[in-house]
């Protein structure tokens, strides 16, 4: 299967992490920035790392940006540059553009320019962090739509030691168990104790819920709020 091709434009903390994760996921990544140091920092990883001004249509056409499946514009602070790059990408005919926004107006302009997805990283991180601070037992929380969310939570009191079918999670909390994250103790090659994480998606009804298990559950926010960890 052909590898999915991405361009990541702007290699600040957000862009660098984005490029690194895409590369680790097996995607081809063209990394672009005007800053030589940022290019150097990703050059060993990226398929192609190039120092260029992405608002320069001629220059970006030369590096084949029009052929990528998705372009991620991760320039937030310089709103003018972000808008110009998105316009250039649209003119090049890039099919999918994801762009980072820093203010609601910036986001609105990007949306009006036809960006497929606008992300507000700071706002999204703040919401998730606030959720985890307000309810420390919750390990992770992701809103879906129409009042539904996915939550990761340590196995609630009374479920540890019982089989999934006997835990009656659905009846008790009106949520669906979609996966169990389990830490498996190991000894590393260096001889130290450690654990590896195992994700059991759609767990078997006979699977026993163990100490330290993290349940990944899907449900309405009200139902999820009713769950209390052990």
């Amino acid at each position: 299967m052909k590898k999915k091709q991405f361009a990541v434009i702007g290699l600040g903390r957000f862009g660098h992490s984005m490029a690194e994760t895409l590369i680790q996921s097996g995607c081809e990544v063209i990394a672009i920035d005007t800053d030589e140091e940022k290019i150097q920092a990703i050059s060993d990883l990226a398929t192609y790392a190039v120092q260029v001004d992405a608002t320069d249509e001629k220059a970006v056409r030369t590096i084949g940006l029009q052929n990528v499946d998705t372009a991620v514009v991760s320039i937030g602070e310089d709103i003018e540059a972000s808008i110009l790059i998105v316009m250039t990408l649209k003119e090049l005919g890039v099919k999918e553009i994801v762009a980072k926004a820093v203010t609601p107006i910036h986001g609105k302009i990007l949306r009006n320019l036809g960006v497929s997805r606008v992300v507000f990283p700071e706002r999204e991180v703040a919401v998730r962090l606030a959720n985890s601070l307000a309810q420390p037992a919750i390990i992770d929380y992701m809103d879906l739509s129409a009042g539904y969310s996915v939550m990761e939570i340590p196995a609630p009191l009374g479920t540890v030691g019982s089989k999934v079918r006997d835990s009656r999670i659905r009846e008790r909390y009106d949520v669906n168990l979609i996966a169990i994250r389990r830490k498996i103790p190991i000894i590393t090659d260096a001889g130290e104790t450690d654990f590896k994480e195992d994700l059991k998606i759609n767990p078997d009804p006979d699977e026993e819920i163990a100490v330290g298990d993290i349940l990944v559950v899907l449900g309405s926010r009200e139902s999820l709020a009713s769950m209390r960890p052990a």
Binding site: I139, P154, K183, P185, E192, T193, D194, F195, V211, G212, I214, P229
Partner: peptide
């Protein structure tokens, strides 16, 4: 200390 840390982490 380290192994106790790993144990506590395993228990969330």
């Amino acid at each position: 200390y380290y192994t106790l840390g790993v144990i506590h982490e395993s228990k969330n």
